[in-house]
């Protein structure tokens, strides 16, 4: 057996898995990316609350509250990101949930800065490695606490 098996770690403090809500807002059905990201984050030791397709800002807010999520990952593939992501930011602010939003999918370079300005914590570009994806989520969470 390996020394210091995980069961040694008490659940208080220390190494608690991050809890991340993953969702797609609106009608866009491209879920290859979000399913890959779900596995990447699971394999990076995070707990993924997978909401999947056709979510609304309300349903995401509810999930974030009840699941006490540390971060939200939104996957966007159909050019609606400039409308939908800022809407999500607003909804979270309204609910007083200081949870970072990370956007992945197809986001043209020129849109990245406006999205950050709108309150999105990070935008994951195409071709990001698994380590980068996990690191971006971790960094966004530590920056927001």
């Amino acid at each position: 057996m390996v020394d210091r098996t995980p069961s040694k770690e008490p659940m208080s403090g220390g190494d608690v898995p991050l809890r991340v809500v993953l969702a797609k807002l609106g009608l866009d059905g491209h879920d290859r990316g979000i399913k890959v990201v779900a596995r990447i984050l699971r394999d990076a030791g995070m707990e993924v609350i997978y909401l999947g397709l056709r979510q609304t800002t309300d349903s995401i807010v509810t999930a974030v509250m009840e699941e006490d999520a540390d971060a939200i990952g939104l996957s966007m593939h159909n050019a609606g990101h400039m409308t939908l992501a800022p809407n999500m930011v607003k909804a979270l602010r309204q609910a007083e949930l200081p949870v970072p939003i990370i956007v992945g999918g197809i986001v043209p370079k020129d849109d990245v800065q406006p999205m950050l300005d709108a309150g999105v914590a990070a935008v994951i570009g195409p071709g990001a490695s698994a380590e980068e994806v996990a690191a971006i989520v971790r960094d966004a969470v530590s920056a927001s606490v």
Partner: peptide, 22 residues
């Protein structure tokens, strides 16, 4: 576009931001 593919009209609340885009 996505609303059409999903059987939604352009004035549906689901369609916001997606009309004519893809």
């Amino acid at each position: 576009d996505m609303p059409t593919l999903m059987g939604r009209d352009s004035d549906s609340p689901w369609s916001v931001g997606e009309v004519g885009r893809a």
